[in-house]
């Protein structure tokens, strides 16, 4: 089966990204496909390259990057959610005249259309709420 993930909760504050990570791993291990992982609301904060969680706790950013790399996943962030919360790639930093960018490698910023497209072409959308 082909899944689309719609993840919404804040990293470390909520369990949303953690649950979604394990769901994604389980799916892929069982031979299912994940068309796209869409990060919405506070979930976009997982792509903040400046986070430094305690070393004896799971690093969600690294965990998602690794999974993304291993399975060539499309890890897509909502641009509007990002701009509100200060997750910027170089071009958005330029557009909004900010002095720095902080998007972690392996994630890309795009629009809500990506969530809709993923929803329509996959067999199931799984939402991990805020």
């Amino acid at each position: 089966m082909n899944f689309a993930l719609n993840i919404q909760g804040s990293p470390y504050t909520s369990n949303s990204l953690w649950s979604a990570l394990h769901f994604a791993q389980a799916c892929l291990n069982e031979g299912h496909r994940i068309h796209r992982v869409f990060f919405y609301h506070d979930a976009v904060l997982v792509a903040n390259a400046l986070q430094a969680p305690p070393q004896d706790e799971m690093n969600l950013t690294t965990a998602w990057q690794t999974l993304g790399q291993n399975f060539e996943l499309d890890l897509c962030l909502c641009v509007a959610s990002c701009l509100r919360r200060g997750i910027l790639n170089d071009s958005e930093a330029q557009r909004f005249e900010k002095t720095a960018s902080n998007l972690a490698p392996g994630f890309n910023i795009s629009g809500l259309g990506q969530l809709i497209e993923a929803s329509l072409v996959s067999d199931r959308v799984i939402s991990f709420g805020a």
């Binding site: 629009g111 809500l112 497209e117």
Partner: peptide, 19 residues
């Protein structure tokens, strides 16, 4: 209580453009 309701409405409006 949060911005979630507002952002969810944005998502629905985006959906209306495609289906």
């Amino acid at each position: 209580a949060s911005v979630y309701a507002q952002e969810a409405f944005d998502a629905a409006l985006a959906g209306s453009a495609f289906s």
